[in-house]
C-alpha cells in the first residue's frame, strides 16, 4: 500500500520533472532562433525532409478521407433528400476538425518519429557532444532549424490535406453519385466562413499542433537514453504523446472556437 503510493508519487514527480525540462528546452530553443537568421539554408533543408517528404502520405490520406466523407455523407443524407448539403458536410468536417488533426497525427508518425530517432542517434553516437567540443551550439545548429521548419510545414500540410480532401469529396459526390455540382459548392460556400472556419480551423489549429508536435519530437530525441533501446522508446513516446496532446488540444480549441 505505502509502496504503491510511493511509486505513484515518484512517477508524478518524474512527470513534472520532464515537463519542466521540456519547458526549459523550449526556452533555450527559442533563444537560439536569433542565430538562425544567419543560416536560412538549414531551415530549407529541414523543410525538405519534414515537409516535402510528408507530401505523398498527406495527399493520399486527404484524398481518401475526403472520398469516404463523400460516400458516408451521401448514404446518410440521401434518406432526407438533402444530398445538396453534402458539400457543407464534407467541407466543415475537414476544415474544422479532420484536416488539422489528421494532418498532425500523420505528421507525428512520418516526420516526428524521424526527428526523434535522428536526434537520439546523434546523441547516442556523441555527435552532439562533439559539436559542443567544437563550440558549435547544437541548439542553433540542430534543434532550432528542425523545430522552425516543422512549425512552418505543419499548417501548409494541413491546408493541402484539407483542400485535397474536399476535392476527393467533390469527386465522389459530383462525379460518382450525381450530386449537383452547383449545389455542392454553393451550399458549402454558404456555410463555411473564412475567419471562423478556415482561419480558426485549419490555420490556427494546425499552427498550434505543429508547435506541439515538433516540440515533443525534438525534445524526446534530445532527452532520449543514448542506447538503441532508449531511442526506440523515445520514438514511440513521440508518436504516442503527440497523438494524445494533439487530440486533447483539439478538444480545447474546438470548445473555444466552436463551442457555444
Amino acid at each position: 500500500m505505502i509502496d504503491g503510493l510511493r511509486r505513484l508519487g515518484r512517477s508524478t514527480l518524474r512527470w513534472f520533472n520532464r515537463l519542466g525540462r521540456a519547458t526549459l528546452f523550449l526556452l533555450r530553443l527559442l533563444g537560439a532562433l536569433a542565430a538562425l537568421g544567419k543560416r536560412p539554408g538549414l531551415i530549407v533543408k529541414q523543410l525538405y525532409s519534414l515537409g516535402v517528404l510528408s507530401l505523398p502520405i498527406i495527399a493520399m490520406s486527404g484524398l481518401f478521407v475526403g472520398m469516404v466523407l463523400g460516400l458516408q455523407g451521401y448514404a446518410n443524407l440521401v434518406d432526407f433528400g438533402a444530398t445538396s448539403s453534402l458539400g457543407t458536410v464534407v467541407a466543415l468536417s475537414l476544415v474544422r476538425e479532420l484536416g488539422p488533426v489528421l494532418a498532425a497525427l500523420l505528421y507525428a508518425a512520418r516526420a516526428g518519429s524521424a526527428l526523434t530517432a535522428e536526434i537520439g542517434l546523434m546523441k547516442a553516437t556523441e555527435q552532439l557532444a562533439a559539436m559542443q567540443m567544437m563550440a558549435v551550439d547544437p541548439f542553433a545548429r540542430v534543434f532550432a532549424p528542425r523545430f522552425v521548419a516543422g512549425v512552418i510545414a505543419m499548417p501548409l500540410l494541413a491546408g493541402i490535406f484539407t483542400a485535397i480532401g474536399i476535392l476527393g469529396g467533390y469527386f465522389v459526390a459530383v462525379q460518382q453519385l450525381g450530386v449537383d455540382s452547383g449545389a455542392f459548392w454553393s451550399q458549402m460556400q454558404a456555410a463555411v466562413r473564412l475567419v471562423d472556419d478556415v482561419i480558426n480551423g485549419v490555420v490556427v489549429k494546425s499552427a498550434v499542433f505543429g508547435w506541439v508536435a515538433n516540440w515533443i519530437a525534438v525534445f524526446e530525441g534530445y532527452d532520449a537514453i543514448p542506447t538503441s533501446e532508449g531511442i526506440s522508446l523515445a520514438t514511440t513516446r513521440t508518436v504516442v504523446n503527440t497523438a494524445l496532446v494533439v487530440l486533447a488540444l483539439d478538444f480545447m480549441l474546438t470548445a473555444i472556437f466552436f463551442g457555444v
Binding site: 515537409g51 510545414a153 501548409l156 491546408g159
Partner: peptide
C-alpha cells in the same frame, strides 16, 4: 511545397 500549401489555402 510552399507554393502548393499557399495554393491550398
Amino acid at each position: 511545397f510552399v507554393a502548393l500549401g499557399l495554393a491550398a489555402f
